[in-house]
Design a protein around this nucleic acid. Structure first.
Lengths: 303, 303
DNA sequence: CCGTGACTGAAATTCAAGTTTCAAATGTTC
DNA sequence: GAACATTTGAAACTTGAATTTCAGTCACGG
């Protein structure tokens, strides 16, 4: 951050940005541009900084801005007063609210558009993006590597889930069986669980997809597996209390503003995990993929 | 800093998800997720707020966060301490600096492996974001409304898909049956398709999930349905040629740089569609939801 | 050159945000 | 139900950021 006069607006040539007339509704940037031509040096340094990074002002204190601009705290305060803010805090808040689309002006205009399809789509996409990003924020590389090792090295992999989680478990199974065998989806249609529970061994791996709302069988199965010394990967959402005794717990964000939880983030994570498993499977995995391809041809599966 | 001993974390009961060991490098979100399960109510409210708006924390004061979360300033401070920050200011600054990839702490904490993993994650997230955005670029409001109407108005809805598509079809069915009955997933385990093909009527709806690689039965089923005058919604990927005679075709982006296709975007679309169906279902849908809840209680489904 | 006004930042001061304390309420265990 | 632990937020307290003051410097006009 140079703090020097990087913004080369010629003072005499500049036309002031047209104000809306009510200072309370004009943005910080607009106000700076309106006064820019008459700003003394020190204040101009601060103004330049703000103009260079308009989206970030609210996250900095006046003291920090002063330092970054190579000016004094007093200069910051003076600039703020010149721009018709009562205090730095008022300016910071206004900048933040404008940035987060929470400003009163924005909300007024948004109300009119609220029913618009595009807004709905945008809001929806943002929620998915947020959930995906937040999910991966919580993924640690070491843990993922261990999970991948466990998937590759397990004698058998049991995928387990109910309701929505069942379809996610099924999807994950379908990825894993591309590169390894002995991957089973539970519960199987028309069957009861106990038979499988007797089979679990400590060289197996139980992968539990357990997004809310969870039925009690989920915890029971994990407890039984834990008692049998079976490693358990619990893929869940942040509302799950602890890891229910699981060896590893991965929390995927599913929350949104709708009645239903949203599963783009879990799907995203499962894909990421699957790709890591494929990579780890190496030559053995590639052989299996080739063999599957052969069998597809034998069975004329794709016409 | 004597701390508040009464809010100390119970030592034996907590199982950390993953310990990186160096608190300074873990994000605010990661820290919250690590402690989430044991957060008492008030702190959890604050944590939820932060998790909901991770990019914006730095622009808010602790007092503002407390108000927004419906908690006290003390709860904010306690949460911050629990997360191993010396002060709110430290947390705020860390959150802010984490937003900018050039922050010194972030750069210092990066080693070669960590950088590669983060790059992998970032690349992965970008691909999902791109696919989701592109998918919705292709969704027309009119078409979606017609699809929603068809789902609500059909005598029966048949969800149909193989391989990965089968699990997506299963997921969609699970959303739809929350607000309407007579929703069926095909193929059913251990059955053949022809029996169902004889049943299709023009007041039914066939929803075909047909992502690549498609087996010939997909096209055959759609042809048969078309011949029977059954409306067909074909949810597929851009490689599908035309709509195979379907009434409506929705193309979701699944392509990425990995061996496997990625399904966050289809999942995102299915969620969006499900939410629209719920909204359209109105009072009848709500009655069904309430009835399902009653039956859950009768069956003690959630313990 | 002198007088005046503007600019400037360090230092003094103010103030409110953040932290800690405390006692009441709530939760847990026996 | 009793004993103990935990949670909670209002109030008291602390702290440091923001504001104001002050004196030195600079610029400009007569």
């Amino acid at each position: 951050m140079t703090g020097n006069n990087r913004t080369s607006i010629p003072p005499g040539n500049r036309r002031p940005v047209q104000g809306k007339g009510n200072p309370g509704t004009r943005s910080l940037q607009a106000r700076i541009q309106e006064h820019y031509a008459v700003l003394p040096g020190s204040e101009r340094k601060v103004a330049d900084l703000i103009l260079d990074f308009p989206g970030e002002v609210a996250a900095y204190s006046a003291t920090e801005l002063a330092g970054l601009a190579g000016a004094s705290k007093a200069a910051v305060t003076r600039l703020i007063r010149r721009l018709d803010y009562a205090s730095f805090e008022e300016a910071r808040r206004a900048a933040r609210d404008a940035q987060t689309w929470g400003s009163p002006v924005y909300l007024l205009s948004k109300d009119a558009d609220r029913g618009a399809f595009d807004t709905r789509v945008q809001k929806h996409i943002e929620q998915d993006m947020r959930n995906i990003t937040r999910t991966f924020d919580g993924i640690e590389e070491d843990t993922l590597e261990k999970i991948v090792d466990a998937i590759i090295g397990a004698r058998r992999v049991w995928l387990f889930g109910y309701r929505n989680s069942h379809y996610l478990a099924g999807y994950l199974r379908w990825q894993l069986i591309q590169v390894r065998g002995d991957v089973h989806l539970l519960p199987a249609p028309g069957e009861t669980l106990a038979e499988y529970m007797t089979e679990l061994r400590s060289d197996d791996l139980l992968v539990v997809l357990g997004f809310r709302r969870r039925i009690p069988d989920v915890k029971r199965a994990m407890d039984i597996a834990g008692d049998a010394g079976v490693p358990v990967l619990f893929i869940t959402d942040p509302t799950a209390r602890q890891g229910s005794g699981a060896t590893w717990t991965v929390r995927c964000e599913v929350r949104g503003e709708d009645l239903f939880d949203r599963y783009s983030a879990p799907m995203s994570f499962l894909h990421f995990l699957s790709v890591a498993v494929v990579a780890r499977a190496g030559a053995a995995g590639r052989r299996r993929l080739a063999l599957i391809e052969d069998r597809h041809e034998d069975l004329d599966a794709f016409g």
